[in-house]
Write a protein that binds this DNA or RNA. Structure first.
Length: 421
RNA sequence: GGAAGCGUGGCUGAGUGGACGAAAGCAGCAGUUUCGAAAACUGCCGUGUCAGCAAUGGCACCGGAGGUUCGAAUCCUCCCGCUUCCGCCA
């Protein structure tokens, strides 16, 4: 959420920003409601002031009868005004919550992901001297995955990992955790469910049309789409001392996504599934330090994927592809033979104070002043997509798969290759 | 799941219908003292929102939502959370 004062004072810039981000917001209507809202606040405030004056006089006890009559009159007035005010306030909230974060001046301008800008590249798409296969076929041949039974038990786009794939997933989790622990992150495992309130604060919209979130019926709980949600909620309504910042967390969680409206061409295999596991980085920083932290997250992701020996690139997400909370976002995209293209494997966002304002998380500075702090998130490893990249890039002519060296210490017998006797 | 108790500012903790936005202590900030620091002493010190250039003023906020009342931190209802005991269970 943006500060309403900021919106008032920067109306045109906010409108322009919505346009660039390809998000439809009625800024004019919001400001119109804002004026109404302030009028109500003034009017109701005046009435309550009178009410309080009457209460004050009641203490001394003169002429109570007429004071009570007067007081009741004010109450009737308030009873009429307050519902009207609430209606305005409700619509006002609905609109302001939709206004996206402002955008870093270096973010590329563009309408969708085709205009994201490659800023770094590590390795090149591999050239095979045989016809490479996609991960789905490779995994089925090696009995590493079972989509059919996944569908039988939980529906399409669910799966069982099997045999070495299970171990490989755990190895990836361990690898990501280990790398971040060396960087002094505090490890967490988080709830896999969270309340509506938390989702909204972090910037997700549960229970709306086209939501990506599974909600649990007759509760206010949702399956988390990412541990960003639970880690953002972790410090909700808290005040953090400056000396404690930055807070860096690394969390394991399962992630659940409905993938509504995205059953497309690129949804084959593990690329778009309803459930996967993820190790996620999260940070709370001083406002002036978030940009630095964002670069650090990006560089850590680079380090993790370099370690896996997979060709990948870093893209700077363009305005139209940014989503609501992000001020700036970088994705890592690994080469995937099944797509014959780069495919997103990680994402890191600087949300500045956008989430902190909604979640009410502040820093108390050394001079005693308070302000909203900044919040950032970044994928260390999303296991499903990392598996795709490892399997497709590590495939051999005989259909076996070479395991990245950094993962072998977690595989039984320091296994180097899957599928070769 | 059953029973009891509790939820007050950054923290600890008083407050059971009008004196309370809230005692006291801690922490924090400014100052006196000091070569500097510590200690001591003095002063300041909750958040949000609305109006205002500002000084300042109004309103709201004592876990959340409703209600009773002229008036609620205080009484009532529901919800959430925590603690203890019992039950159950991985």
């Amino acid at each position: 959420m943006l500060d309403i004062k900021f919106i008032r004072e920067n109306k045109e810039a906010v409108k322009k920003n919505c346009e660039l981000r390809n998000i439809k917001c009625d800024v004019d209507r919001l400001l119109e409601l804002d004026e109404k809202r302030r009028k109500f606040i003034a009017e109701i405030g005046d009435l309550k002031e009178k009410k309080n004056e009457i209460n004050e006089k009641m203490k001394s006890g003169d002429d109570k009868e007429s004071l009570i009559v007067e007081g009741k009159g004010i109450k009737d007035n308030l009873d009429k005004l307050e519902p009207e005010f609430e209606e305005v306030e409700k619509e006002w909230k609905k609109l302001i919550i939709r206004i996206p974060n402002m955008t870093h001046s270096d973010s590329p301008i563009g309408k969708d992901d085709s205009e994201n800008k490659e800023i770094e590249r590590y390795g090149e798409p591999p050239k095979f001297d045989f016809e490479p296969k996609g991960h789905e076929e490779l995994m089925k041949n090696l009995d590493l995955i079972d989509f059919e039974r996944g569908a039988k038990v939980a529906g399409a786009k669910f799966y069982f990992l099997k045999n070495e794939a299970v171990l490989l997933e755990q190895a990836l989790i361990n690898y990501a955790l280990e790398t971040c622990l060396q960087e002094k992150f505090t490890p967490l495992t988080t709830p896999d469910l969270a309340k509506d309130k938390i989702l909204l604060g972090v910037g997700f919209n549960p229970r709306g049309e086209e939501t990506q979130i599974y909600s649990v019926e007759s509760t206010d709980l949702n399956l988390v789409g990412t541990a960003e949600i639970t880690m953002g909620g972790y410090h909700m309504d808290e005040m953090v001392d400056e000396e404690k910042l930055p807070l860096k967390y690394i969390a394991f969680s399962h992630c659940f996504r409905t993938e509504a409206g995205s059953y497309g061409r690129h949804s084959a295999g593990l690329y778009r599934v309803h459930q996967f596991s993820k190790v996620e980085m999260f940070a709370y920083t001083l406002p002036e330090r978030s940009e630095e932290m964002h670069t650090y997250f990006k560089d850590l992701e680079v380090k993790i994927f370099k370690g896996l020996g997979i060709p990948f690139r870093v893209v700077d997400i363009c305005t139209g592809d940014l989503g609501g909370p992000a001020y700036r976002k970088y994705d890592l995209e690994a080469w995937m033979t099944s797509r014959n293209d780069w495919g997103e494997v990680t994402s890191t966002s600087d949300t500045t104070d956008y989430q902190a304002r909604r979640l009410n998380i502040k820093v108390r500075l050394e001079d005693g002043k308070k302000e909203f702090l900044h919040m950032l998130n970044g994928t260390a490893i999303a296991t499903s997509r990392a598996l795709i990249a490892i399997i497709e890039n590590g495939q051999q002519a005989d259909g076996s798969i070479v395991i990245p060296e950094v993962l072998r210490k977690w595989m039984p017998g320091n296994m180097e290759i899957i599928g070769r006797k």
